[in-house]
Simulated assay, not measured.
Amino acid sequence: MTTSVRPHLRRKLALVGGLAVLAVPALSACGSFDYATDRPNVIANGGYNMDSNVRVNAARIVSPRAGKGVFIATFTLNPTIGAATAGSPNPSFTGLETSADAKQTVQAKGGFDIQIGNAGLVNLADPSTGGVVVTGDFKPGDVVPLTLSFSDGDKATVQVPVVTQCGAYASVVPLGKKSPLPAPEATGDTSTDPYSCTYPSVGPYGE
């Protein structure tokens, strides 16, 4: 004999089952606390290190020609390790060097001491601050592992891409300067091929 389920009972069972399914992701989300704001955002083109006392975001070398560029990054204090405290000096960015596994060489030109500041943040891409001039055997498209040093003795290793001084990077300036590094055309330097920020115009069939 076939047993039938009343229509109102079927609706009640379906409703209970749906509520149980909805409850599973809610419980798992509460247990993980893995919010998007707690994870590194790597959408922007740049290297990062979130584990040191000073967090490094969007690290890049902006290069107008092979072998020369400006190192930029955004530095923020890691609140879980060394949060900013009123009256105590924040660490400053004092040095960079290529890591042991680097295939290219990068050297900072001159000494520098860039204060993180009372707000616990500094952006070297901001023209009011400026970045660190570097030289070496790098070129756009390279990714160079750099070890950054800070005044509190902390170090952070970052995989740093080299980008051309075009588009959003055209306004990047060296520390204490008001103008970007000159391109080879402006200096008469013919030792390297000049970079062009102009895309060639191409027809519908590659003409």
Score class of each variant (00 low, 15 high):
A102C: 13
K139A: 15
K139Q: 10
S4G: 03
V133M: 00
N49Y: 08
N90G: 01
G18A: 11
T80A: 12
I114R: 10
V143R: 08
V173L: 02
G31A: 15
Q159I: 07
P174I: 00
S128D: 13
A23L: 12
F112T: 00
F112L: 05
A108F: 03
V160A: 04
T3E: 09
P194W: 03
T129K: 14
G120W: 00
T94A: 10
P127R: 10
D34R: 03
Y169C: 03
V134I: 05
S149I: 06
N90F: 05
Y169L: 12
V132I: 14
S32M: 08
V134A: 06
D189E: 11
V56K: 03
E185T: 13
G176H: 04
T157S: 12
A86M: 08
N41W: 08
G188W: 09
S88F: 04
G130R: 14
S32K: 15
A20S: 12
L148S: 06
Y35I: 07
T80K: 07
T2C: 06
I72G: 08
S92F: 06
G47W: 09
C166L: 06
A59N: 09
K12L: 07
P40H: 15
E207I: 01
S179R: 04
T76C: 09
I116D: 01
N123E: 09
S4K: 14
Q165H: 09
A86I: 11
F93S: 01
L121C: 03
V163P: 02
Q104V: 06
G167Y: 00
L175I: 09
I61S: 01
S128C: 02
A23E: 11
R10D: 10
S128N: 10
A108T: 06
S201R: 11
C197P: 10
N53H: 02
V173R: 04
A58V: 14
T98P: 04
S151C: 10
S149G: 15
G188L: 04
C30W: 06
A44S: 12
G95H: 07
T74H: 07
T80Q: 04
N57V: 07
G18S: 13
A168E: 06
Q104A: 14
V144P: 05
P180T: 13
G167M: 00
Y195A: 00
V21G: 02
V62K: 01
D101T: 05
N78K: 02
A29R: 02
A86Y: 07
G120N: 02
P25S: 15
D101W: 08
S191W: 00
R10A: 15
G69C: 00
V24I: 07
F71Y: 11
A14D: 02
D113A: 00
V21K: 00
L175A: 13
L181R: 07
S92N: 08
A86D: 12
A168N: 05
E97T: 15
S196T: 14
T147V: 10
F150I: 12
G167E: 02
V162K: 06
A29V: 02
P204I: 10
D34K: 07
G110L: 12
A59L: 04
P200W: 03
Q107L: 13
D38H: 04
G47D: 11
P140F: 07
P40N: 15
A186G: 05
Y169E: 15
V162I: 12
A14W: 03
T2V: 11
